[in-house]
Amino acid sequence: MKETNNKNFTSSGMSLIVKTVTRWTVLFIMLYGWYITLFGHLSPGGGFAGGVIVALSFIHIILAYGKDFVVKKINKILSESLETTGALMFLSISIMGFSVGVFFKDFLGQGKAFSLLSGGMILPANIAIMIKVGFGMLSAFLCLILFSPQDEEK
């Protein structure tokens, strides 16, 4: 087969079939993670579950295309910084409770029941948790693959 610049034919990662299927499914997996997060206050799910699914979508790409493909776009420092951002978002949501008097108090109001924008600060808190958990898991996974013993042998 002729060598091309097409990323499907790079030597790293799994076979062409896996790469193609990954290309088709990975956005849906991520979308599902976002759905679980955003509707966490209305249906089963929430920030933690959504975050795990979002992290799995990234891990899926890493497994299919090999680590170099992903590490070029999301390196360890970016992933860790985003994780910290999630934690700081959650902390600032809780601190904003001081604006209505008490730490962690709901400052957004209830909204109309069963609509997306209801449940007060649960929705932003879920998003913050999703970022924290998603990128936390991704950082852990990146640590596992970046510092493997094979690298030292090379």
């Binding site: 420092i77 860790e80 910084s81 910290t84 951002t85 934690a87 700081l88 902390l91 809780s94 601190i95 730490f103 962690f104």
Partner: peptide, 20 residues
């Protein structure tokens, strides 16, 4: 009273981001 937890947590996370 919550500041005893909030301030160290805040320091920890800001520090991960900016300190490096």
């Amino acid at each position: 009273l919550p500041l005893f937890v909030v301030l160290p947590l805040f320091a920890a996370f800001i520090n991960t981001m900016v300190g490096r």
